[in-house]
Each structure stands twice: as structure tokens, then as C-alpha cells.
């Protein structure tokens, strides 16, 4: 599945278009990681646990979006956008959406 965040797939032409497909996740890390992150807040630096969490969330959301696109029979998703929300404290909530298309 090709994905771009521009309106086309360079070198190819879009032959048909299915509309918006999307994937979303809400994920958390266990409490131990939350405590470590709290401690890290004193010293600064990268919160590895949360970096990992964001990555996992993003991958899962993309996987779900791709699943929708392949259900439609698309072979590419163009103009992909990410969005976040915040319902739960300490959770990564990722929403990814784009236009499912067939390119040739």
C-alpha cells in the first residue's frame, strides 16, 4: 500500500478514487512507565516509553487505515493526515486519514 501526504503519487496517475479512509487508536503504557516518565520530568530528556507508545499507536492506526483501503480495493492512500485527541490521561490517541485511490 503506497501512502503519500501529497495529492498525487509521483510518476503514477490516479485512475479512481474511493473517498476518505481512516484508522484510529487509543493506547497506553503500564503504570510503571508512567511513574518513570514522571521521574524523567525532573531531569528532562527523552521519554522513551512514550516515544515508543506514540510509535506503536501510529503504526496501529496506519495499519487500520490500510485495512479499510484494501477492503475497498485501493492500492494507494494519498494526502494522509494525522490528528490527535486527548480523552485519557497518559494515553496516545492517534487518528490518521487519507483518500483511498487506485493508481496506475
Amino acid at each position: 500500500m503506497m501512502m503519500t501526504n501529497i495529492e498525487t503519487v509521483p510518476g503514477k496517475t490516479i485512475s479512481s478514487c474511493f473517498g476518505v479512509v481512516s484508522g484510529s487508536t487509543v493506547r497506553t503504557k503500564h503504570a510503571g512507565r508512567d511513574i518513570m516518565a514522571g521521574l524523567k520530568n525532573i531531569f528532562g530528556g527523552e521519554l522513551r516509553g512514550y516515544t515508543e507508545l506514540l510509535g506503536e499507536s501510529r503504526d496501529e492506526a496506519i495499519r487500520r487505515m490500510q485495512q479499510q483501503a484494501s477492503q475497498l480495493g485501493a492500492n494507494a492512500i494519498v494526502n494522509v493526515r494525522f490528528s490527535t485527541s486527548s480523552v485519557a490521561a497518559g494515553a496516545a490517541e492517534i487518528y490518521v486519514y487519507g483518500t483511498a485511490v487506485v493508481v496506475e
Binding site: 485512475s15 479512481s16 478514487c17 473517498g19 476518505v20 479499510q68 477492503q71 475497498l72 483511498a100
Partner: peptide
């Protein structure tokens, strides 16, 4: 470019 029915039309 041809517009086709989106994800809402699928019963998955």
C-alpha cells in the same frame, strides 16, 4: 479519475 463509493458503502 473516477469516483467510486467509499468505506461507508461496505458492510464489513
Amino acid at each position: 479519475m473516477k469516483l467510486k463509493p467509499g468505506i461507508e458503502s461496505l458492510d464489513t
